[in-house]
Amino acid sequence: MNSAELDPDDSNTGPPGTVPALARGVQRRRILRMAGSALFAVPPLAFGARAWLSRAPASPLEAMARMSSAQAANGRLRRWSMVIDLRSCDGCQRVGKPPQCTAACIEGHFAPQPMEWIQVYEQELPGNGTRFVPATCQQCQNPPCTNVCPVGATFSTPEGPVLIDQERCIGCRICMAACPYDRRFFNWATPPQPVEALGMKYEVEHQAPAIRGTVMKCDFCPDMARAGTLPYCAQGCPNNAIYYGDLEEDVATNGKAVIQISRFLSQNSAFRLNEEYGTEPRVYYIPGAGEAVGRDSSKRGRLATVWPWKKVASGSRTWSR
């Protein structure tokens, strides 16, 4: 190898053997050596800076949701939960209408077509019968969806409900991939919703107006519970199959009867959907196929949900599930 120190390149470095040429060589060597390791640190540093800058509560909405008192009389935090008595659910076959829980939810929340935040699935039973399973967001206490959200737009609240801040959501839909219950919905276009929803002030607990390119789902109506009202779905159920209440006080109601949740669950062999996932849902089911309201489990089918809006936001369009 020929030594270029003795015969340095004639282009830029000045006369051979001068101090600047050597100094530059040393400096360059250091730069080259450091370049590798130093630049790997750039992305983590950016994130570190971000973490330092945003020590404050992540957003006013999230802070509000965090601080919302909603405490039981004894000062403890409420733990909202739902019990759905499948013995009383006939998919609204008796009343001859589409499921009224879904209808009430849609009207109350202005849920854009085709979203059914509470959706009544018809599930095959052993034998030839079926049962109807109204499924809200299961409000998991170990929610896979909030874990994966890159921006903290969906989060667990201390009272239990899992909420989505549509003003922060970036629409990556990884929460929809993570949700094992198919309970998340995306605004694929400008969502079809009634014009009155457009005038509303957006609240994270009442997701109206809906925003294109963001994810929505059942919010468990904690705002209504605090106001002393049942969620829309529980109000809408003609068979009073949906109980809503507070695990902390161990009490729930369907609007007609009041139950002690713990006793009701254990006496009626309650279950939760896909317990094996370890998601710890806050929605409990009492097994049944509508027998309490006189349904023959071999009678299949329910009417399709309709969205009652006469007039929807201009420029909106619907899509299929």
Partner: peptide, 10 residues
Amino acid sequence: WTGSAVQRRA
């Protein structure tokens, strides 16, 4: 770059 030994080593 001049191709000097120092640079090459670096």
